[in-house]
Amino acid sequence: MLIRFNKPYGVLSQFTPEGRWRGLKDHIDLPGVYVAGRLDADNEGMLLLTDNGPLQAHIADPRFKMEKTYLVQVEGMVTQAALNQLSRGVTLNDGPTLPARASAVQPTADLWPRTPPIRERHNIPTSWLELVIREGRNRQVRRMTATVGLPTLRLIRTVVGPYTLDGLPTGTWQQI
């Protein structure tokens, strides 16, 4: 069994809640399924769960370099120079990243509002980019955008490998 879940902000990639963060059990009541890859509580979007150990390892293990696509709202305006840096790969404190595919985008009309909303500063604009990576380091996308001078305000994983969020409202899941 493979499940795609559109994880809301504030939900951990585990079934038990911890501190101020909710757990998956608030949304998914299926015994025997486990998360295939993580998505931090302050990030939203595609989370896959399965009851198949080899499939879980294939999705989560960085050796398989499964592509993940992120829609990222950043503080500041996305520039071609920043996109070029991200596309070549950037150096983080734990070493260089692999090259990414990066492009400036506009969010789709069906993008759900985040609860709570992001912080906004009236004198600092925000913009969006799409970033496709094949790694999964801790908070990698946030660190990559910060390295190019664009701090992340909102991070939504939209695709993992061949699986997308298409037609899946936030907080809901569907068996694939």
Rank of each mutant, 00 (worst) to 15 (best):
G149C: 08
I133P: 01
G136P: 01
G149T: 06
R121T: 11
D166I: 11
I124W: 11
V141Y: 04
L150R: 06
D110M: 05
S127Y: 09
V105T: 02
P116H: 08
R137H: 03
G161I: 01
N123I: 15
R134G: 10
G161P: 01
T108R: 14
P113E: 11
T108M: 12
V160A: 01
G171Q: 05
T115V: 15
L150S: 00
G171E: 07
P107W: 07
G167A: 08
P162C: 09
S127P: 07
M144I: 10
Q106L: 15
T147F: 11
W128V: 11
Y163T: 09
V141H: 03
Q140H: 00
T158G: 00
A146F: 10
L131T: 04
N138D: 05
I118W: 11
G161A: 03
T158F: 05
V105I: 12
G161V: 04
T115Y: 14
E130A: 01
R121C: 12
L155S: 00
R142D: 05
H122E: 15
L153S: 03
E130G: 09
L168Q: 05
R154I: 03
P169T: 03
Q106N: 14
N123G: 12
W112L: 09
W112Y: 13
T108Y: 11
R137I: 00
I124V: 15
W173S: 07
E120P: 11
I118L: 14
G161W: 00
L153E: 02
T164H: 07
I124L: 13
T147I: 08
V160W: 04
T164E: 05
V160D: 02
T164W: 09
G167D: 10
P107D: 03
P113M: 08
S103D: 13
R143H: 07
P116L: 05
A104H: 13
T152K: 00
T152R: 01
T126E: 09
G167K: 08
W112S: 10
L153M: 04
V159L: 10
E120K: 15
L168R: 10
V159D: 12
P117G: 04
L131P: 02
W112I: 10
T126G: 04
A109C: 08
P107I: 09
W173Y: 12
W128P: 08
V132L: 12
I156K: 00
I156E: 02
L129I: 09
